[in-house]
C-alpha cells in the first residue's frame, strides 16, 4: 500500500534522508522512530507530497506521489505534528471542506460519527481558533479519516491529548488498520509504538538503521517483552550506529 524505494532528500549539501526503502502493507502499522533530526518528518512530508524527494520513488496505493500526486493524495490521510486549522472555520466546516476537497458525497453521517467518536459533537460550531491543542489534533484526525484513506500518516499523534483522547486515538488507529489501511506513526513515544505498531523502522542521521516486524527487532536485542523492550532496542541500535559513524 505504501512503498518507498531508495528515497533520499537533500537540502543543499545536507542529506536529511539517505537512500531508504520500506513497504507497509494494508493492515500493518509501522512505527517510525529516531532521535531529533533523524529524518522522520521529512519522510512523512515527502510521502504526502508536501516536499519533493531529491531521488527515489514513493508510492501510495500504487500511485507515484511525484508522477500522480492527485491520485496518490486521494488515497492518503496525513496528520501533521502541529495541525494548523483554519481559524475562521468551525469544526463542522473543516469536515465539510475536507469532504468537498476529497469529493466525498453524503459525508454527513460519517462526519457525525467521527465527531461522536472524538468527543467533538459539542464543539461542532466552535471556531478553530478557540480550540485547545488536543481538540485541534482531534479535528485534524477526524478530517484525515473522513474520506476513508487507504494509507494514513501520523506525525506525533498523541501530542496534547488527554488520557481519554489518547485511548480513543489508539483504538481508532487499530480499527483503521483492521479495516485494511496501511498506517505510519512517527513518534518519540516508544511505549506507544511498541504497543500499537506491527512493524518498526529506526532512523538515525537520515539513514535506515533497522526495519522489520516489531517482534524481530525486539528479538535482535534479546528482549521480547517487558515495558521497555523497544526502548532498549532503540538505544542499542542508535548507539551502535553512532559508534559505527565514529
Amino acid at each position: 500500500m505504501i512503498k518507498v524505494t531508495n528515497y533520499s532528500k537533500r537540502y543543499g549539501d545536507f542529506a536529511a534522508v539517505k537512500d531508504i526503502s520500506f513497504e507497509v502493507a494494508g493492515g500493518e502499522i509501522l512505527g517510525l522512530v529516531g532521535p531529533n533530526g533523524a529524518g522522520k518528518t521529512t519522510t512523512l512530508r515527502a510521502l504526502c507530497g508536501v516536499i519533493a524527494p531529491t531521488s527515489g520513488t514513493l508510492s501510495i496505493a500504487g500511485h507515484d506521489i511525484v508522477k500522480e500526486p492527485i491520485a496518490a493524495k486521494r488515497c492518503l490521510g496525513y496528520i501533521p505534528d502541529d495541525p494548523r486549522l483554519f481559524d475562521t472555520l468551525t469544526v463542522w466546516e473543516h469536515l465539510a471542506f475536507t469532504a468537498a476537497a476529497y469529493n466525498v458525497a453524503d459525508f454527513e453521517e460519517s462526519a457525525e460519527a467521527l465527531l461522536q467518536s472524538f468527543d467533538l459533537t459539542k464543539k461542532r460550531d466552535t471556531l478553530a481558533h478557540d480550540l485547545s491543542r488536543g481538540m485541534r489534533q482531534k479535528v485534524a484526525i477526524a478530517c484525515a479519516f473522513l474520506h476513508e484513506p487507504q494509507a494514513i500518516l501520523f506525525d506525533e499523534p498523541l501530542t496534547g491529548l488527554d488520557p481519554r483522547g489518547i485511548r480513543g486515538i489508539q483504538q481508532s488507529i487499530r480499527a483503521r488498520a483492521r479495516a485494511g489501511a496501511a498506517i505510519i506513526i512517527s513518534s518519540h513515544l516508544l511505549s506507544l509504538v511498541e504497543t500499537l505498531c506491527t512493524h518498526v523502522l529506526v532512523l538515525n542521521s537520515g539513514e535506515c538503521r533497522r526495519f522489520g516486524a516489531m517482534s524481530e527487532v525486539l528479538l535482535d536485542v534479546g528482549q521480547t517483552n517487558g515495558d521497555s523492550a523497544l526502548e532498549a532496542a532503540f538505544f542499542s541500535i542508535t548507539r551502535d550506529s553512532e559508534l559505527e559513524d565514529a
Binding site: T88, T90, W92, E93, A96, F97, A99, A100, A101, N103, E108, R124, D125, T126, L127, H129, D130
Partner: peptide, 18 residues
Amino acid sequence: KTTGHSVRRAPNLGGLGP
C-alpha cells in the same frame, strides 16, 4: 466570536470550490 453557524456543504467545482 468563538462559535459560528456552520454551512453544511462546500461546493467542489473540480477542487476549486472548497
